[in-house]
Simulated assay, not measured.
Amino acid sequence: MLNRFGDYPIRQTLESFARPATSDPCFYDRMWFNGYADDAGQYFGLGMAVCPHRGILDCHFSVTWAGGLLHCFCASRRAPAERIELSVGPFRLEIVEPLRQARVILDDNESGVACDFMFSACMSAIAATTLVDRTERGDALFMLMLNRHGRHALDWQALDEVAVRI
């Protein structure tokens, strides 16, 4: 199956990017962003993961406050054929400029929290060392992490109004 990357000379296997190079049903690819308020009193984390062999795309957005407040939104859907389609229900992640700028949108939903902000890199992305954990039955973990450091414009005051105590 071809996808939008079919015109680019970037393949590393004989397959298109629509098909993972492994048949491992537990294979997944994910991304993670997090950030802190200037006073470190609030923290947010968001992530998306696609499990192509299981046909699932998951996302989450969570916010914590000093003193034990938490809000969390989680959603799943069937994985789209196009891997650059990064939306699950009211949640969207738009890659504005690869490795430099991303827009995070969580539209109004039944969880009560919504946001729309930009994450902008303040330095080049860093590829961490590949982590491989091998057991007698095969690879238990094979991971490559990409670290990005940047700035965000999350409206903490708007989120304060919907926080719930843990």
Rank of each mutant, 00 (worst) to 15 (best):
D160K: 13
G67N: 14
A102W: 06
L69T: 10
A49Q: 13
T64I: 15
A114N: 03
R77H: 06
R54K: 15
A75R: 10
N109F: 00
R30E: 06
S76A: 14
M145C: 09
Y8E: 07
I56V: 15
R151F: 06
V113S: 05
N3K: 01
L146Y: 06
M145E: 14
R92C: 11
R78G: 05
T129N: 03
Q157H: 05
N109W: 00
Y36M: 11
F5E: 01
H60N: 14
G68L: 09
E97I: 12
A75F: 03
Y8Q: 08
C115K: 02
M118K: 09
G68V: 04
M145I: 07
A79I: 10
C51L: 15
L57K: 03
Y8L: 14
D29P: 00
E85C: 07
Q42I: 01
L159P: 01
I105T: 15
R30Q: 04
M143Q: 14
D139E: 13
E85L: 10
A163D: 03
S23A: 10
F33L: 15
L141W: 05
R19L: 12
D107P: 00
P20L: 09
A18K: 11
L86D: 02
G47P: 01
T22V: 10
R11M: 05
P90F: 02
C51G: 07
H152P: 09
G6D: 11
